[in-house]
């Protein structure tokens, strides 16, 4: 093969029109974390939050605001590693300066511009009446419609809207939706709705045999489900921080 040379290799590269590069916009809501001294107590509080809402930081960009921390605060050197260990994906650092000796060993992400502040983001389990204002300006969420059965081991993720399945979801399959989940078939796997703070999301199934139902971080396992509902048309919703399953009329 190596000794064969095609004519294209011999010819000088033909002059081509410069390729047009297309770019599209996509907005994400970044979380701003503001640690306070003492940092070890703050990290402990963070661990408690993570334990109560597992996966809350997964895939979310985080900006670290060090405005409340003095540059000689104890444990500041290790803070970035500590956050990385908790799978917190840092995209920016604010309120601090690269010249601080404690930050000498830190990886410094490229600075970002044009951020717009939005309201406080509540952790999914956080108490309070108001639903978390996750999006500053709510965008039109698109539904994902799937016209086939979801097989064991398949995982469907759709973080910004509803998921509709025309077919069954097998044991060992998983649906994850930012909004609600609608299944026109048997739900035998896991359905996780309202990911990222939508306590009003619901899960509907024509035949409810779910292994696990979760809404906004609260979950229920098959064993806790009422036997009367098994294999019936049913919906799951969050009521007073508990997943409740009721038969559909």
């Amino acid at each position: 093969m190596t000794d064969q040379t095609t004519s294209a290799d011999l010819d000088p590269a033909p002059a081509r029109a410069p390729m047009r590069i297309r770019a599209r916009g996509r907005s994400f809501l970044a979380l701003v974390l503001s640690p306070e001294a003492p940092l070890d107590a703050w990290l402990e509080g963070l661990d408690n939050q993570i334990a109560r809402s597992v996966g809350f930081f997964a895939g979310r960009p985080v900006i670290l605001d060090l405005g409340l921390v003095a540059q000689d605060a104890e444990g500041l050197e290790g803070l970035q590693t500590a956050l990385k260990e908790r799978s917190i994906h840092m995209i920016g650092i604010e309120g601090a300066d690269r010249s601080w000796p404690a930050l000498a060993a830190w990886d410094w992400p490229a600075s970002l511009e044009g951020g717009r502040a939005s309201g406080a983001v509540e952790f999914p389990e956080a108490e309070g009446e108001a639903p978390a204002p996750v999006e500053a300006a709510p965008q039109r969420a698109e539904s994902l419609i799937i016209d086939r059965a979801i097989r064991s081991g398949q995982s469907i993720m759709h973080l910004d809207g509803d998921v509709v399945v025309i077919g069954s979801v097998a044991s060992g399959a998983e649906l994850v939706a930012g909004g609600s989940i609608h299944i026109y078939g048997a739900l035998r796997g896991r359905a996780i709705a309202g990911v990222g703070g939508q306590p009003n999301a619901r899960i509907f199934a024509a035949r409810m045999q779910a292994e696990l139902l979760a809404i906004d971080g609260f979950y229920m396992i098959a064993e806790e489900m009422d036997a009367e509902i098994h294999d019936q048309p049913a919906q799951a919703l969050l009521s007073e921080d508990r997943v409740t399953v009721t038969k559909l009329p």
């Binding site: 597992v54 908790r86 799978s87 044991s171 292994e211 696990l212 979950y219 396992i221 098959a222 064993e223």
Partner: peptide, 29 residues
């Protein structure tokens, strides 16, 4: 992983919330 069966044979399939991978990756204790 990916073809689990032990939970079925042990009769624990209706009680699974977190699994080995969640623990390995630090998402659950």
């Amino acid at each position: 992983v990916g073809l689990r069966n032990l939970d079925l044979v042990m009769g624990a399939e209706r009680r699974v919330v977190f699994d080995f991978i969640n623990v390995v990756q630090g998402d659950a204790k």
